[in-house]
Design a protein around this nucleic acid. Structure first.
Length: 911
RNA sequence: GCGGGCGUGGCGGAAUGGUAGACGCAACGGACUUAAAAUCCGUUGGGGGCAACCCCGUGCCGGUUCGAGUCCGGCCGCCCGCACCA
């Protein structure tokens, strides 16, 4: 046996051995209970980074563990292969997106394979493969038929640099999430998925996802943004209203404050604002000014609330003699509610700031408890708490909730004439539950000869918008529809799928290469046979990743996206692992998509991911030269001494500044290449270090010292196992020694204790604790071996115990360091592979002690210990404790006030 | 502004309301070595004492409890998410 473990030589050897036996290929007819482990599949950028190493190691530990526990584990991998970088590469390097993508996939796959992951590569696919996206196109058509995919004229976020439309979620601080360019608003025809049909359901079902991080559920809850309120129609004073306008609809959650109303505020792009601006150049200028600020200058906007009096007056719903001025305001959003509010300054800070600026007055209508209504005034801090209604006529004395109910009740029974002109835009989003046929807009009932509608209706509003999926890009899944002058929008017949991307697109001008292609879009209409054009928009890449987890269950099915019995058996994913940056978009879209697939018969469940885990980032120190340039960790040598750490450039010896710890990034140059680490130390060391120290959901700091510590531990394990193997061989020839019974028992207890702890911690993904338990076992093992060596002889019983401990230890670290485990397993003379060995069961008898040592506290401070029989009664324990010298001294002859005995835990004497 | 999370040695972090600091890193001492590396053995929250031991200590201030890092209330700080959301 070698005295050093050679990872570079051993790791590829064991990878080949696993491969040869095909042990990670999952069979769909395997009858054992299934367990689906999935890590978020990567975008094929060309290189893996440490974040991937961490993510995939965690999933692999779980997969190997569950496999050893007898499950039919599905652990697949694929490629999120569509996306803009491929087109950028095409432009910059004249390499077609497809070639670039597959080249990257090959490189990254080779890297992943050096990690020794227990992946079923037979299920691998890339989303850019027509064999994948043809099913996606099929589902798009199914969604269309089910009313879940529609074409709408929409105001969209246009990224002028990427020349594409972005979803609201992809606009961050008014800038494109990828390009960083300031986003413009444009009206365009867009395909959308009707995710808002599921707003309530997506919200409600969050409560059932008990194995998701609370943080992620909360983020989704906020994103969906449900609010209950009242939609109130304010009639306009006809003398002041623009022609054709008779009312303004307002959504409010504070209808209790209606008697504190001082103005109506409408968004700059509200129809009423537009109508008023038509005859008022100053107003038009104000609106243009608002729009110009619009997105980017959030900071300035938050400070100053601006408005412009339209001259229009609205009638108070409870008092036609009371009119409210209608202002165009810069703090009301067209995108939320109806794009109009009524302002109650006393109980809303924004309204108060506004009113104070324009001198519209303040009337408090909710009086806090324990405050005298007569002296209650509001000057510059609004009161948004609970209280009793005041200054509110018939509402006076009610609570906020009672007042809300009363206002809603009265106004939903009052009526106003139906406006003459149907609204075009500014309609509220669809109410929940959806209106029944025959109800809704344009309806109303008759009063005399006049059509009337209620003044108000209770409404639930959601922040969530429909999901716009059209992208003006080449490298994405084509939307399978055809535009015909005669027939309109015609779905591509199923038989003609896939609508494949042309291979010969060119990328020499900005915009959509698919649209620029000379021939691709010109087709005949499937309905009338006349000339027609293909849709040249492709789908948002989030569509691709919204169902890949389902496709993995049967990627061989050529005729359908899924095979029902198979997909229904494997889903939901038991444990999904990925970065928190996908907490909203990807996870919410996938949840919607699964429901849409259910409606269209492709799947039998609602929730795709039963367990979700968000892992932390990999962070690293930064290094800067005196000139302020960042340098990479590889260029730096660190020296540590009692006076701290110093860093020098290896090349020149120049001292560099050790800077803050940050997420690994190219710009800070603080990345560490997984290839370098695996090449130098081996995959097991990289894997082990990723699991050590930090809890998996927190950031982990990558340090050279830590990696070296892991490397030393690998060598230590190897030596220990080797020593145990030699002991076992020697056992037959050694004479027996009875004195080692205690050593045998202690060693066995250490091994089985660690086994029990690791077995409990892996399914909870508490890998840092698993690592600590394995260190502890190794330390105990080391101490035991040293003591045995010094005792001068080894009994067969001890040799057997050492061997058992070694085997358990190897099995315990095998999910984390699978190559080393195989090498050790072979050294122990075991036949077969660790990867195919069952997980051992701890012997319960070894987990309990015959005697227990309890800490003894006096007045809550630990002062002594008492060792008693495990089965001792509290009375017996109390008697033993009172005999202790320390306790006697503390009591000084007096009787204790109280003695608390917590069985198996602690004793507290109250003196 | 709203919501959530976190705050423990030199550092990363352990600790079902029950012995605070497991385990690792770093540092220091010793053994082995001509020497170094590697390895092995030990020390390492602060203060006091010759010692047995004693006192203090989980961001700060209070509270509940026999007992609080953990629960409750109020501050302070950091991180994350959302944000004129009506």
């Amino acid at each position: 046996m070698q005295d050093r473990y050679n990872a570079r030589e051993a790791e590829p050897r064991w990878q080949k051995a696993w491969d040869a036996r095909g042990i990670f290929a999952t069979r769909n007819d395997d009858p054992r209970p299934k367990y689906y482990v999935l890590e978020m599949f990567p975008y094929p950028s060309g290189r893996i980074h440490m974040g991937h190493v961490r993510n995939y190691t965690m999933g692999d530990v779980l997969a190997r563990f569950m496999r050893a526990r007898g499950h039919n584990v599905l652990h697949p991998m694929g490629w999120d292969a569509f996306g803009l970088p491929a087109e950028n590469a095409a432009m910059e390097r004249k390499i077609p997106p497809r070639a670039w993508t597959y080249q990257n996939i090959a490189a990254m796959k080779a890297q992943l394979q050096t990690m020794g992951l227990s992946l079923d590569w037979s299920r691998e696919f890339a989303t850019c493969d027509p064999a994948y996206y043809k099913h996606q196109q099929k589902m798009f058509l199914d969604f269309m038929r089910a009313g879940l995919a529609e074409r709408e004229k929409r105001k969209v976020n246009w990224d002028p640099v990427d020349m594409t439309v972005l979803a609201n979620e992809q606009v961050i601080d008014g800038r494109g999430w990828r390009s960083g360019a300031v986003v413009e608003q444009r009206e365009m025809n867009q395909w959308v998925f009707k995710i808002t049909k599921y707003s309530q359901e997506l919200l409600d079902a969050l409560d059932t996802l008990d194995r998701w991080p609370e943080k992620v559920r909360l983020m989704q809850r906020n994103w969906i943004g449900r609010s209950e309120g009242l939609l109130i129609r304010f009639a306009l004073d006809q003398k002041t209203a623009p022609s054709g306008e008779s009312e303004v609809k307002v959504f409010t959650t504070r209808h209790d404050t209606l008697f504190g109303a001082k103005f109506i505020g409408v968004a700059p792009d509200h129809p009423l604002a537009q109508a008023a601006a038509a005859k008022n150049p100053a107003l038009a200028a104000f609106i243009a000014e608002c729009k110009r600020h619009g997105t980017a200058q959030a900071i300035i906007d938050t400070q100053e609330k601006l408005g412009f009096d339209t001259g229009i007056r609205a009638l108070h719903p409870f008092d036609p003699a009371w009119t409210l001025p209608v202002y165009v305001t810069n703090f009301v959003l067209m995108e939320y509610g109806t794009g109009a509010i009524f302002g109650c300054p006393a109980h809303d800070q924004r309204d108060l700031d506004f009113v104070n600026k324009y001198g519209l007055g303040v009337t408090p209508v909710v009086c806090p408890p324990d405050v005298d209504p007569k002296s209650f005034v509001i000057t510059d801090v609004a009161y948004d708490g609970d209280g009793r209604m005041i200054n509110s006529r018939f509402l006076d004395g009610m609570s906020v909730d009672e007042a809300k109910e009363e206002v809603a009740r009265l106004l939903e029974h009052a009526t106003l004439p139906v406006p003459a002109r149907p609204r075009e835009s500014g309609e509220p989003p669809p109410p929940y539950p959806p209106p029944q046929a025959g109800e809704g807009k344009g309806g109303g009932r008759l009063r005399g000869n006049e059509r009337v509608e209620p003044v108000a209706e209770r409404q639930v509003n959601f922040r969530l918008r429909d999901w716009g999926i059209s992208r003006q890009r080449y490298w994405g899944c084509p939307i399978p529809v055809i535009h015909c002058e005669n027939c309109g929008v015609v779905p591509v017949p199923d038989a003609d799928l896939p609508v494949a991307l042309p291979e010969d697109a060119t990328f020499d001008k900005p915009g959509n290469a698919l649209d620029h292609h000379p021939t691709w879009k010109h087709v005949t209409c499937p309905q009338c046979g006349g000339p027609a054009t293909r849709e040249t928009d492709t789908m948002d890449t989030f569509v691709d990743s919204s169902w890949y987890f389902a496709r993995f269950t049967d990627p061989w099915n050529e005729s359908a996206p899924t095979t029902r019995p198979v997909v229904d058996r494997y889903l939901p994913v038991d444990q999904y692992i990925g970065g928190v940056e996908h907490a909203i978009l990807h996870l919410l879209y996938s949840r919607f998509f699964t429901r849409a697939m259910k409606v269209t018969g492709h799947i039998g469940i609602d929730e795709p991911f039963a367990g979700m885990f968000t892992q932390g980032m990999v962070v690293h120190e930064t290094y800067q030269t005196a000139a302020g340039e960042y340098v990479t960790p590889a260029e730096v040598k660190i020296e540590a001494g009692p006076n701290g750490r110093r860093a020098h450039l290896i090349a020149t010896g120049e001292e560099v500044n050790i800077g803050s710890i940050e997420k690994m990034s190219k710009s800070k140059r603080n990345t560490v290449d997984p290839d370098d680490i695996i090449g130098e130390y081996g995959a097991d060391v990289a894997r082990w270090f990723m699991l050590s120290d930090s809890p998996p959901d927190r950031d982990v700091i990558w340090t050279e010292e830590g990696v070296q510590g892991s490397w030393r531990f690998v060598q230590k394990l190897w030596r220990q196992v080797a020593e145990a193997a030699e002991l076992a061989e020697a056992a037959a020839v050694c004479g027996s020694r009875q004195a080692e019974e205690a050593a045998v028992l202690a060693l066995r207890k250490a091994a089985h204790g660690a086994l029990a702890k690791v077995t409990g911690d892996i399914p909870r993904l508490r890998f840092n604790r698993c690592v600590a338990h394995i260190y502890e076992l190794s330390n105990a093992f080391q101490a035991s071996l040293t003591a045995a060596r010094q005792a001068g002889g080894i009994s067969p019983a001890y040799a057997a115990a050492a061997r058992e401990a070694a085997e358990i230890m190897v099995l315990l670290f095998s999910p984390m360091m699978p190559h080393l485990a195989e090498e050790c397993w072979a050294a122990l003379g075991k036949s077969g592979l660790v990867a195919e060995s069952p997980w051992p069961d701890a012997e319960q008898a070894l987990l309990v002690e015959d005697t227990v040592t309890l800490p003894v506290q006096i007045n809550g401070r630990k002062r002594a210990e008492v060792t008693v029989s495990r089965s001792a009664t509290p009375a017996e324990i109390e008697r033993a404790v009172l005999e202790l010298d320390d306790v006697k001294r503390a009591l000084d002859g007096r009787a204790p006030k109280k003695v608390i005995v917590v069985p198996q835990r602690i004793v507290n004497v109250v003196a």
